[in-house]
Amino acid sequence: MTKAARGSLLGIEHMEAAEILGLLKLARHMNPLKPRPLLRGKRVLLLFYEPSTRTRSSFEIAAKSMGAMTTLVLSSGSSIEKGESLLDTAYTLRAVGADVIVIRHPHAGAPLLMANNLDIPVVNAGDGMHEHPSQALLDAYTILRHKKTLKGLQVAIVGDIFHSRVARSAVHLLSKFGARVTLCGPSEFLPEMATSLAPGLRISRHTEEAVRGADVIMVLRVQKERLAGTKISLQDYISRYQMTMARLKLAKRDAMVMHPGPIIRGLELTWEVADCPQSAIVEEVRNGVPVRMAILAKALGKAR
């Protein structure tokens, strides 16, 4: 199906479980505080068509921790503004000597298109509403630092599932390892067909029901402007789906609270939940670096 170069990371959906485990294992050997010149002389191109804080900085730090050279290209201020097509931009970056391209793009499938037309690996740093595989990998990495296995874990994903590439990647990954995933949100953000994404997926419209007995609660960001197009008001959303300490108490005592960021305190979660001892939100960001080191090392064939 795909003609992508070896080492490309395009999405979790088509990955084998063994491949995912391999990356997670490799990440455990990565330590940004102890730089290893694994990628010395390699050029990592960070091509960002959308704003990003966490993903961009952690890919950059991951690359530099392994001795690679990084170049950042943003859609604004580049020839992309002059109408250059995605593939022509890709050929240009290849020609200047990129060894790997890390791309974030507002259109679903853009990384796959690029990978299918290049002879260097492409890493998807988020494409439209499709996938955000490095986020799912760092989430799995984070969960596994606290839980023995993903198998049988009860996971609730709450919020705007429809618009979320994080949710799609997380669902694919967790389902591959036998976690029991419940998606929770209003129908505007969680259509019934969401259950077709992976076998065994469940839907709940009530936060209490979704989080009861959960081992992991993933909270997703909600954009106010997206609520504007629906029948539910901001107040409605907050009262029904906001993660509060009271709702968190319904979960297992050692339940983890996760969030891909950026968080909006007072909207999808309260101040208290964001900073509570069970919150793994900051740890997720920290774990993003070793996980992305593993992704880049594997992309460039230095996965040892």
Partner: peptide, 11 residues
């Protein structure tokens, strides 16, 4: 089309 495939692809 609106369906399982569009949901999967994020379209």
């Amino acid at each position: 089309n609106d369906g399982a495939t569009s949901f999967r692809l994020g379209l």
